[in-house]
Amino acid sequence: MFTEWLKDASKIILFDGGMGSEIFKRGIEPGKLPDMLNIENPELIYEIHKTYYDVGADMCQSNTFGASFLNLQRYKIENQITEINARALENIRKARPPNRLIVGDIGPSGEFRPPVGKATSDQWVSSFEKQASVLEKGVDLWHIETMSDIEEMLAAIEAIRNLSKKPIISSMTYKKTKRGFFTIMGDSLEKCVRAQENAKVDVVGANCTLGSEEMVELVLELTNLTDKPISAKPNAGQPRIDNDKRAHYDQPVKDFVADIKRIIALGAKVVGGCCGTSPETIREIRKVIDSL
């Protein structure tokens, strides 16, 4: 179905919004791996997915951002990789209405390559394969996101391609510098786009780090760099930590949605939100898309 959506020129695909901020909003203490909630509090994860589907998201992603082998290893719970990912699938399957899609979410391993860390491409590939092999049976497509290293992105793509034929959205995370958009590892937007094109992903995207306003600029550059469909999941501005110990995103929903409207006008095919966005944000974007 996703491939048909991509071919349908009139279709703008609505992704979901933030997961972490929704979890904290429901009173869960920050500090633990949100992926564990798939097991410890499945009702809560189900409810968040369901809310996003209910407000009109075409597709939502599994709560598996941190459930790759290497990342779980950092929390010493890598032996639970199968259960965490399998339970994540159950939670989102229950929430998914007909004619909507389930996206398998793959986040960064948390391990960097030298000189920053010690990770190798082989370790990355093997780590993502272990996660993706569990998710493959239940997802319609993949979203590899928040990657700050194009090498790790390529490893994740390779891992998925080794065991799945389903479409891939690959979203890098960029910071804005005076010389343009770069990953924190120092790769330019153009270099990353070329690498993602060569890896034959289905949709080239960006998510997190940037607020919606900067994401508009980035999408404009993306449209000049590639003919691939584009996905954008910006943050709701920049976070502020309040006395209640929570990260707050103060950007008004209407400002975020206005930027998303511009992102769609520039030609993005898939839109949604990252940190600080909520079902309210997605509901408002739904209205915008439906009015187009």
């Binding site: 000189p115 510098t177 005076k178 990953t183 590892m185």
Partner: peptide
């Protein structure tokens, strides 16, 4: 800060 150096340079410099 200026965006001329990135994480690898920061890390190498520190080492």
């Amino acid at each position: 800060e200026e965006g001329d150096f990135f994480l690898p340079e920061l890390m190498l410099g520190g080492t």
